[in-house]
């Protein structure tokens, strides 16, 4: 992907994040995600019905990479089943960790395909995935 386009997508999702709003609403599962080594700290809220993630939003404080990754990730997750979410997540984590992944499945999440070049930002890109991992685990119980 073109470097400028990649930056534009990330920056746009940082400065105008998708579904970032304060407050708690009925029917949502709240999951906190934070990085021990830094100050990123987000609460992500999921609404799940009939095995589908029908809505999600988030709030908190985090850097440009964490915030934008959460924004893009939530947009991709809404409407997916738990199993689809799990698959998306697995491919996303593989991409961040330089393992084989399905590019088509990830859509615009591929803007982080070179984040491994900055090892100290890998955890930032993985911040939302920690929360989704827990959601999937809890719902599969």
């Amino acid at each position: 992907m073109d470097k400028n386009l990649r930056r534009e997508i990330i920056l746009d999702n940082f400065q105008n994040p998708f579904h970032k709003k304060d407050g708690t609403f009925d029917g949502y599962i709240k999951i906190n995600t934070n990085n021990e080594s830094c100050i990123d700290n987000l609460d992500i809220y999921f609404k799940v019905e009939g095995g589908y993630i029908i809505d999600a939003y988030f709030n908190g404080e985090a850097c440009a990479i964490s915030t934008s990754a959460t924004s893009i990730m939530l947009r991709r997750l809404i409407g997916k089943t738990i199993l689809e979410a799990e698959n998306l997540l697995k491919n996303y984590q593989n991409m961040i960790n330089e393992k084989p992944y399905d590019e088509n499945l990830l859509e615009d999440l591929i803007v982080y395909d070179e984040i491994y070049l900055q090892p100290n930002r890998k955890n930032c890109a993985l911040l939302p995935s920690k929360a989704i991992e827990r959601l999937v685990k809890d719902l599969k119980k």
């Binding site: 830094c38 100050i39 990123d40 404080e61 985090a62 850097c63 440009a64 915030t67 900055q118 100290n120 930002r121 930032c124």
Partner: peptide, 21 residues
């Protein structure tokens, strides 16, 4: 700018500062 992004920016110029609480 989120402070962590500032710290990463400064690190690019080999300037070490702390970001956080």
């Amino acid at each position: 700018v989120f402070p962590q992004d500032t710290a990463v920016y400064l690190d690019h110029y080999n300037i070490c500062v702390r970001a956080g609480n």
